[in-house]
């Protein structure tokens, strides 16, 4: 279960202090999917970063699977992240010096999965995302849709308990985006993954079990 309790986050910018999140609270059951919807700049990315341990909120607590992640030491938080979290970023963010195969295998290596087992897992995922023939390609040789598919495979490779996807279809055309979402939901649900996806696409939010609508950093509506 994911529990957010009144989290607030502020940034300092050229325009002074900007409050990105204000007293955001919600609970997401294990294995369920939540769609965080809202306009650009509403705080969706900050919220996902706070849940994933990438940005520490000034106030509030984030409890993931029973662990208050911001009470952990930096090292323990990193070790918790590598085991339990998978990220799909808006622009893929693949490691540019690693091949498709190595990018998907990276979280497996990081988690100490045996080489043979890792290879089998990567091959299985490559087949699932339809990129078996591109395993030796470097990220700059891939299209946007392919990058996002590899990114989704990498996020799910080590079977994390929580999958966070920050507008994964934003840089894709409609068809490619739909296919990616279908793939992510299929892979995530098959593994019993809890998923939080930020989007402003109503079609994607309709697939989620829970919709959290935010505006100016506040939750304005929560639909189960």
């Amino acid at each position: 279960m994911i529990e957010l309790e009144k989290i607030s986050k502020e940034f300092r910018s050229g325009r002074g202090y900007v409050r990105a999140l204000t007293d955001v609270s919600f609970t997401l059951e294990r294995g369920k999917t939540a769609a965080v919807v809202g306009k650009s700049g509403s705080g969706k990315t900050t919220l996902l970063n706070c849940i994933g341990g990438l940005e520490r909120p000034e106030k509030g607590t984030v409890i993931c699977f029973g662990a208050d992640i911001y009470s952990l030491s930096a090292k323990k938080l990193s070790l918790f992240q590598r085991k339990n979290f998978g990220f799909v970023f808006q622009h893929g963010n693949l490691l540019s010096y690693l091949t498709v195969f190595e990018n998907i295998a990276f979280p497996l290596w990081l988690n100490g999965i045996a080489e043979k087992q890792a290879q089998l897992r990567v091959k299985e995922l490559l087949k699932k995302i339809g990129l078996s023939n591109a395993q030796a390609a470097l990220p700059h040789e891939l299209s946007g849709g392919e990058i996002q598919r590899v990114s989704a495979a990498r996020a799910i490779a080590h079977s994390p308990r929580l999958l966070l996807a920050d507008e994964p279809t934003a840089s894709l055309d409609t068809v490619t985006g739909k296919n990616l979402i279908a793939l992510m939901f299929e892979m995530g649900r098959n593994q019993g993954c809890t998923m939080v996806i930020s989007t402003h696409d109503p079609e994607i939010s309709r697939l989620a079990d829970q919709i959290i609508q935010i505006k100016d950093g506040r939750v304005i509506k929560e639909t189960a």
Binding site: A74, K75, Q81, F87, F89, N93, L94, L95
Partner: peptide
């Protein structure tokens, strides 16, 4: 990116 994937500072 690696940090986000859980690589420690050390």
């Amino acid at each position: 990116i690696m940090k986000a994937m859980g690589v420690t500072t050390g």
